[in-house]
Design a binder for these strands. Sequence first.
RNA 1: GCCGGAGUGGCGAAAUUGGUAUACGCACCAGACUCAAAAUCUGGCGAGGUCACACUCAUGUCGGUUCGAGUCCGACCUCCGGCACCA
Length: 804
Amino acid sequence: SGFLHMGHVRNYAIGDALAWFKRLQGFNVLHPIGWDSFGQPAEQAAIKRGVNPRDWTEENIAHMRGQLQRLGTSYDWSREIAAHRPDYYKWDQWFFLRMYERGLAYKKLSPVNWCPKEGTVLSNEQSSGGVCWRCGTAVEKRDLEQWFLRITDYAEELVEHIKQIEATWPEKVLKRQSDWVGRSKGAFVDFAVKGTKQKIRVFTTRIDTIYGATALVLSPEHPLLNELMKGSVLKDEIDVFGTRARAQRAERANTTEEEEKEGMNTGILAINPFNEETAPVWVGNYVLMEYGTGAVMSVPAHDERDYEFAQKYSLPIRRVIERISHEQEEIAHDPVQEDQSRAMPHAFTDYGILVNSGDWSGKLSENALTEMAQHAQQGSFGEPAVTYRIRDWGISRQRFWGAPVPIIYCEKCGTVPVPEKDLPVQLPDHAEFTGSGESPLAGVAEFVNTNCPRCAGPARRETDTMDTFVDSSWYFFRYLDPRNDSMPFDPALAKEWTPVDQYIGGDSHAVMHLIYTRFWNKFMRDIGLVSHDEPVKRLLTQGMVTNRVEGTDEWKAMSKSLGNGVDPDEMIEAFGADAARLFILFAAPVENELRWSETGIEGAVRFLRRVYTLVWRWQERLSNQPSTAGELEFSSDSRRLRRKTHQTIARVTADFEELHLNTNVAALMELFNELMAFNANPATASAADVFAVREALEALVIMLAPFSPHVSEEMWEAMGHQGGLLTSARWPEADAELARSEELEIPIQVNGKLRSRVMASPQVSEEELRSAALADEKIQSIVAGHQIVKVIVVPQRLVNIVIR
RNA sequence: GCCGGAGUGGCGAAAUUGGUAUACGCACCAGACUCAAAAUCUGGCGAGGUCACACUCAUGUCGGUUCGAGUCCGACCUCCGGCACCA
């Protein structure tokens, strides 16, 4: 939208710190940036202010690039890309054509999510919860002809491959994805319609309860309904019911309450293939056409919804599963008799023992799941089945500022894909922005009117553009090869560099971008562009940066509309980029919400200034040639400083791998505090003292560079590294020997309570430690008069004396 | 309702995965410097208790395991997030 906010700064500060760390360790790091520049903000600006979306976008990019550079981010700008440029979106179109060839991109008329405020169609992922992901407006359902991508073909893999990333992606993201794909195992069962040759197919995950099915319930939108009701006196009434149910469903799209269940008996009878009993066929507003087969068998005894429905309409409730009893004798009773007499206060949804179920009675219901599904298959009235909740990805958008769908409609030849040699299908320079809801491209005659690539006759272009999530589904692969004009990227480069080692973003994209990009990767694998299943090895979901909303107690993500945004440029102006970055990484763990605070950032300024001052105090001594440690005599104080230095290096190095950046900054502050406490005067310090100070300061400055690069670079130079940039320095290595403590303080507990401490050498034996503890004066006075039951000695850790 | 995650000082948060709870920072208090203020420096800072110690209590609540529990187990409470009739 043109301006960075502190949420961006946090994201980039995390990534930049990691890139610095890995480069200093000697790795070859690809650290790119680009612009997801198609989409609504540019189009809104065009509608409201009449500006050209392309100019507006380019200006914003220039501004944001400046902001990023002022923050000192270390991107490889030679790989910068932008989605709205033809050399990028050409490849969106190329991918679309590859999918079209394989039947993975298709057009169909279907009820789609329509945001009335934005005047466009949205995907299911973008209208999760019944509201538009951008503006929060309740979405409506409209029947429109739209382009879809067959993400459902990959539903199984999207669930299955979670195994490959579950150790390195946040659990909550994978959980949401897994729920979104919504795999459920069950069975299809065909119920014959009495007196016709028709069958009604239901999906159930509980085929074990089928002897308890006392009705079938169809969705009001079920396609068979019309045919079955032909000639029935109830037909008109059922139609009215269906229309009303649809209207009500649309109305409560954004409410949280469950709708009252309503239904109507159709008068049709269906036959349960397991027991040949007839069951009435109803229509019900709670049966979704979009899931399963749009028809369910109603088992009131063992399903809460069916129970509620049966209660309301007095349908019979037949219990067919009994709880497994722990008391042997209870099983011996005849459970059928007992159940029939007992009213059920609610549905029993657990597994148990089948009763009242023909030959299946007495079996464990859980085991019957597979057996009954196989039985249905053998009898040709059903089969085991897996269904998914995820729907195909609708990508048509009635917008100008996106990649045109590369399709041409010819009167003679029909739907014709644009030949690859004609890509990109370029956006025109100008269009009318009415905000009316129809794609602005439809009003651009020179765009719409074209010739058919097959017959050369007059033809019209598709005027919808693609969802911007198409652009972002594969962009990180383009960084590998940003100027390639014959392929999206060279597969050899992908093999070398991908999957992405570390991806950083918000968890708001859990079921949008992050699921699309996994899908896209699998498709790219299938056409031979990449060789791995998953695009991203490790994912970090950073927490939001929030600020108080003026006049309230609420902390919300910074945004223009709430007026609680903080401009990074103002922070840079007031405190400097280094302090802003340091504070944002220090204040909280990277995945936590971060509440913005100006007093916090002042603390970061203070720390940097103190380090800087210290470097200047020692500068003169440090610019001389360093001695080597071997020829020096270290005092106990300088050995202590060196110990802290090497302990800190070890700690920071390890914590960086886990992105525990807040504790890293704390560790650097501790090292600095140790340096301040080091009792040596720069004017008179011994060579050994200078060595220890140099070692500590060099380590400190190098390890500070990922957080605060500018001031670190300047301090590096002041320390005598003129001409040798910090970027070419090497990350320090911890010497385990020097990091080891010379003396340990061992806590002594009595009955688990801390009572005293003794000093001991790290080599002290268990026996020595035990006697030292017992010899301690304080311990003796506590223990006196008690019996010592035992003494627990944890080497190098503690002693616990148990007394009675 | 279902599924996740989290509860530690006034605040942001640490705790090597069962071994000295409260590191580091913010805020606050006192002192030094200053005519004064800011900045800077020094010291203090969980609660109770004490001149000061000692000691007692404290990681949402209650219980359990253990020599020892912020960490493990069980029950509960509160907050945050996700999903929403998915058969």
